[in-house]
Simulated assay, not measured.
Amino acid sequence: MMNELQSGDPQDNRNDPHSTGSAAETASDTIANNTPDTTSTNTATGISTDATATTSEYTNDTATTATTNSDANDTTTTAATNATNATATHIHFPLRQTATAIVCIAAFASLWYARAVYNTHTGTSFWLFWVALALALGVWAAAIWFHWWRVLPSAARIPIGIVLCVALCSFGMSQAAIVSHMRDEGNRNLDYIIVLGAQVYQGSPSLVLRYRLDKAAEYLRANPGTTCIVSGGQGPNEPYAEARGMADYLEHDAGIDASRIIEEPNSSTTVENLRNSRAIIDSANNTGSSTSSTVSEPSIGIVTNDFHVFRSLQIAHDQGYTDVRGIAAGSPRDMLLNNMVRESFAEAKYLIKR
């Protein structure tokens, strides 16, 4: 029975070539064998997709990292720049503040000095220069603080800079010339000395003039053959002519014989001092004319304060003095700055007018 079932069972059609089921199964198997494995394909596709996705994600991560690094670098650069600017501001601000403070202090010092010069009652109004200087320094301090110089166009800054440089150089040169004659002692046994006048008060000369007279008396005592000419007229704020007060001081206070003193009471400037004194010398020695060309030129010394010697000698040479020397007297130390600055302006005025 089992054998029948195995060999002839109609239900067993596996070996029957005409069986429809067998053909279908065969076809199905054939199709199954020849059709690509969808699962494998899908798996491969999934792997490829995953790889692509991974690559894309890596690329995106790399780009993100690069962007992050770039942002970090930009942040670091910005921070460094801000730190540099902060440092520059931190350095620049104290310098500006310090410079402004220094100029302000100079302005207040100039005002104080103006008051000191005014209180000496020298008879001049040069103390106003120090007031003007204080105002100029105040403007300069404001210009430093508010950066006014940067606001000016180049067309204005260049001429201003040139003018300031020329003015400073000229002032420096005049000061050097003044200093070069501040210790002149003159020669011994001069024929004449001329004492230039200055402010006199009732009964006494001013401090500046006293320096000149004391130096003249010292020279006259050391050189008994020298004649002294005191030169100076009467100013609007003086009780009498400067020459009169100078002669009285030399005779009564310094002990110089009156016969050695000649008064010249008509001059009001250094130019007039030397011109009028020269006329007296020429008259006494028959010099200064064409008929007396064989007469020797007298030797002359000019007695004045140390800051005034250079300009006095310059004026003397311009007026024809040939054998002339400077004799420098002292001057009040607290007023030396005022006198030297004033002398530079007087020198500039003389050069312009001569």
Rank of each mutant, 00 (worst) to 15 (best):
G235Q: 08
R260D: 05
K215Q: 14
P205H: 10
D191F: 12
E242V: 07
L213W: 03
V208A: 15
R212M: 09
L196V: 08
I256G: 04
A247I: 05
Q199L: 10
D214P: 06
V230A: 00
M246H: 01
V230Q: 02
H308C: 10
A254G: 08
A284K: 13
S204R: 15
P236K: 10
V295L: 08
I262V: 05
M246D: 06
P298A: 03
R212D: 06
P239T: 03
I280K: 10
I256L: 02
Y211N: 04
V303D: 07
T226W: 07
E218P: 07
L274M: 10
S277Q: 00
L196A: 01
K215P: 07
S296V: 14
D306Y: 15
D248G: 08
E218C: 13
D214A: 11
L274R: 09
M246N: 02
E218N: 15
Q202W: 11
R212I: 11
N223D: 03
P265L: 04
V303Q: 07
T287A: 06
P298T: 02
V271W: 08
S206W: 00
E263H: 10
N286S: 13
R278V: 05
A284Q: 14
S204D: 11
S206I: 04
T227D: 01
S268E: 04
E264L: 05
Y240N: 11
S267F: 01
A247F: 00
E242P: 01
T287P: 06
A258E: 15
D306K: 15
T227Q: 10
E263N: 07
G255R: 04
E251T: 12
S289T: 15
G197T: 00
N276R: 11
A243N: 09
E218A: 13
I262S: 03
S267M: 00
P265G: 03
R210Y: 07
R278F: 12
V195Q: 09
S293A: 11
I280A: 05
P236Y: 11
N223W: 05
P236Q: 13
D191M: 11
T227Y: 01
E264Q: 10
L196T: 03
I194F: 01
V303N: 09
R260T: 05
T291F: 12
N273A: 06
Q199V: 04
D257I: 06
E272G: 05
L207R: 15
N286L: 15
L274F: 08
N223G: 02
S290I: 15
G232S: 03
P239G: 03
L250E: 00
D282C: 08
I262L: 09
R275C: 06
